[in-house]
């Protein structure tokens, strides 16, 4: 009968809707690992060091499970959760980076001679000339390369299978700390594009958790020429344009006397620095995070202070104004402070 047929069709469509919703909602598991010719770790690292990806555009997803405490005034990307970064590069130093947030967007554009930072929330644009050593922010190409270079002495570097990232086949380069390293980190995985030899994804795994503590990687990536209009910036009407102070870019000048000292090397490096002296609540530059109320109180032979710990790193801010931080447990920090 038609009634029964339509009732069946109706329930079928409803079930299909639920299944479809499930397909959308449940992220596709690790896809089939692509078959790639074997490559040694040395070869892979070397090829990454030499590569030049050319123009590309894509979206990078930052998946942050560091467990950083919420810091007023800090960018949303620091808090736990996922956020997207949209990146375009013409391969010759001109580029655009967008940091979309729910309500607005921060945009960084470098046209080769001038870098612009535009914030839609207060409609301000900061302009500064580009110097040769300017590093593109949040570019996984650069950050992964740097990480490999730094960690090779104290780590085991191996190629552990393959993966598919942003639809592209990639080798999984794994950096594991040597057993002597006293670190919170378990391993760092870098997915390297099989063809372009560009790092596509960086995954940081901490001890005690199977899930990544931090992951940044492309979810969408296309190589090829990009629209040149992306690499120019004209301040839109109604924008306040300021010139960045010389030196450290848009961030306020760092006060004197805070040159950091480095204790240890490799995975258990601890950086000890001196925080700005004086009444912090008044001297704190506008927009900078207020750290004075964070963490839990700790004390020891080195003095007393507050411990801020996350999944991959710890920091101690002492009451006498010192800061020690590293990807290490609390004990290593206190040893460094006691020096």
């Amino acid at each position: 009968m038609r009634t029964k047929l339509w009732a069946r069709i109706g329930s079928g469509v409803a079930v299909a809707g639920v299944v479809g919703l499930g397909l959308v909602a449940i992220p596709a598991g690790a896809g089939a690992q692509p078959e790639l010719p074997p490559v040694s770790a040395e070869e892979l690292v070397a090829s990454v060091g030499q590569t030049s990806p050319g123009p590309f555009g894509g979206t990078v997803e930052v998946d942050n499970a560091l467990g950083l405490p919420a810091i007023p005034g800090a960018p949303a990307q620091l808090a736990n959760g996922t956020s997207d970064v949209r990146i375009w590069s013409d391969g010759t130093g001109r580029g655009r980076v967008s940091l979309p947030s729910a309500q607005g967007e921060r945009t960084l554009v470098s046209d080769g001679t001038t870098a612009w930072a535009y914030d839609s929330e207060d409609r301000t644009a900061v302009r500064k000339p580009v110097t040769a050593h300017e590093v593109q922010p949040a570019d996984p190409t650069r950050s992964a390369t740097d990480a490999i270079a730094q960690l090779r002495q104290t780590s085991t570097v191996s190629v552990d299978g393959t993966a598919e990232v942003a639809g592209r086949p990639a080798y999984e380069l794994v950096l594991t700390p040597n057993p002597t390293e006293r670190t919170l980190l378990r391993e760092v995985r870098i997915a390297v594009d099989a063809e372009k030899r560009v790092p596509l994804r960086l995954t940081v795994l901490a001890n005690g958790s199977p899930d990544p503590a931090f992951e940044v990687g492309f979810t969408d990536l296309t190589f090829g020429p990009q629209d040149p209009a992306l690499f120019t910036f004209t301040p839109p009407p109604g924008t306040t344009v300021t010139d960045a102070p010389e030196g450290t870019g848009e961030k306020p000048q760092r006060p004197e006397g805070v040159q950091p000292t480095v204790v240890g090397d490799g995975w258990d490096t601890v950086v000890v620095a001196r925080a700005p002296q004086g009444d912090r609540s008044q001297q704190r530059p506008e927009g900078a995070p207020d750290l004075s109320q964070l963490g839990t109180p700790v004390s020891g032979p080195w003095g007393s202070g507050r411990l801020i710990s996350t999944a991959v790193a710890s920091a101690i801010v002492t009451d006498d104004g010192r800061i020690a931080a590293g990807a290490v447990p609390e004990q290593v920090l206190t040893e460094a402070l006691a020096r």
């Binding site: 009634t3 029964k4 339509w6 009732a7 069709i9 109706g10 329930s11 079928g12 469509v13 409803a14 079930v15 299909a16 809707g17 639920v18 479809g20 919703l21 959308v24």
Partner: peptide, 15 residues
């Protein structure tokens, strides 16, 4: 997907 679920249930129920 929600629309399919809603319409499917409606068709089924109206029968």
């Amino acid at each position: 997907c929600y629309a399919a679920i809603g319409l499917g249930i409606t068709v089924w129920r109206m029968q």
